[in-house]
Simulated scan of single mutants.
Amino acid sequence: MPLVPTPFDAVHIGARVVVRYRLGTDPQRPAEGPSMTDATGDLVARTDSAVVVLTRRGEVTIPRDRIVAAKEIPPRPSRRGAPHLAPTVAELQRIAGPSWGAVERDRLGDWELRASAGFTQRGNSVLPVGDPGVPLADAVDRIEEWYAVRGLPAKVALAGPVGFEPADDSLGAELLRRGWTAGDRTLNLTAACDAIAAADPGGPDVRITADLDDTWLAAYSQSRAVIPDVTTTVLGGSPGHLFGSISLGGGLAQKLGLSTPGSRAPRPVAIGRLGLAHGWAGLGALWTDPGFRGRGLGTRITAALAARARADGIHLMHLQVEADNDVAIRVYERLGFARHSNYVYLTAPG
């Protein structure tokens, strides 16, 4: 499993990591012994000079100047089966949460409150996983107050098995009792990066970069309204991210039998984004110019991003798609994604 450099200050305490580090000079170790070793476990502490990893054999303190390479890896699954289907509903919510940024994040016990000036529902909703640390009714009161201060409608992303009903969940029942409305049911799909990369149909080159540039953002702005500074903060707010694009100048467009309206200068006509967190890659912001649809460009970008994630040692992917978008769901399932769970947005009245 390849290791990639990891800035430990960007990895949250509690994340599962593997760290390769140089062994110090040890008079008890034979000269021909190994010079490096790996520590795999939970990151429990870090200082300017060292990190502490809780392994099966106990805590290991690793001086930072001895670290050769490291990476965050997926949490140990609670269920058997294919690795991408093994996480529980709650575990997948924790995994997927950081893959989409937010301007502001706050904690209510284990719950996370996110606000981004109204840009995207994911960036402006509560991730209610775990214990809020207060009685349920008090937790809802605090949520309503927190969003009211920011001039935003209180919103909760409530997850459950595929087809679940919010009223059957204790939090969902409390919100519905208060007059909150449920809508925008969304499917969580998961897959192995290998399967998605293998579905690559071929085609034009895909440019992949870790930086959000103006041309990518200009293409993204054609799919939804953007908010200066806020949008870039959200798109660039994951622990890691990759931005993919296909740009078609006049020559390449003609080669593919396509026409480029207006300028012949290269411009992105298809884009996609991966948010990297907890050893998973979260696919989002997938868009193709209406004049270039039906040519497999979205599939090409998805497969290329999966291949890049796999090359970086990430083997699992997730994405969110509206549950009533039958066309998109069929495309994703043909690629190799499977239905894992649902979530529903509940929004406070007024």
Rank of each mutant, 00 (worst) to 15 (best):
I143V: 13
H318G: 00
V11R: 05
G123T: 03
I62L: 07
A173P: 01
L189G: 03
V226I: 11
E72S: 14
A311T: 05
G58S: 06
V234L: 05
Q320E: 14
E144N: 13
G24Q: 15
V89F: 04
G250R: 13
I73Q: 05
A210D: 11
D106C: 02
D326M: 08
G118F: 07
E174R: 08
L316H: 12
G172S: 10
Q28M: 11
L43K: 00
T302A: 13
F8C: 05
L316T: 02
A139R: 13
C193W: 03
E333T: 11
V19W: 09
P74I: 15
A82F: 04
G272N: 00
A82M: 10
A157Y: 04
K155V: 13
R16A: 14
C193Q: 05
L276F: 01
L276R: 03
W280N: 02
R264V: 13
P83Q: 05
V162Q: 02
G251C: 04
V344I: 14
G130W: 13
Q320N: 07
A191T: 03
G284I: 07
G97L: 15
E91K: 07
A338I: 01
P74S: 15
R308M: 03
G24L: 15
V17W: 13
P239Q: 00
G58I: 06
R334P: 11
E144L: 09
V68E: 06
A15D: 12
Y332C: 06
A277H: 02
L283I: 11
Q254P: 00
A191S: 04
D48R: 15
T233C: 02
G250C: 12
V126M: 09
V44C: 05
G163M: 02
V126Y: 10
A323G: 14
I62D: 07
P74K: 15
L127S: 08
E145H: 13
L85C: 01
D324H: 15
L258Q: 12
T37L: 09
A86I: 12
L3E: 04
P290Y: 11
D38N: 15
S341E: 08
G336E: 10
V53L: 10
A219T: 05
G240A: 08
V18M: 13
V17N: 14
R207Q: 13
T288Q: 02
T302P: 01
G97I: 06
D205W: 01
G202H: 12
A303H: 00
N188T: 15
R29W: 08
G250Y: 12
V103F: 02
D141W: 15
G236I: 02
R94V: 08
E72D: 14
G160E: 05
S170H: 06
S35E: 10
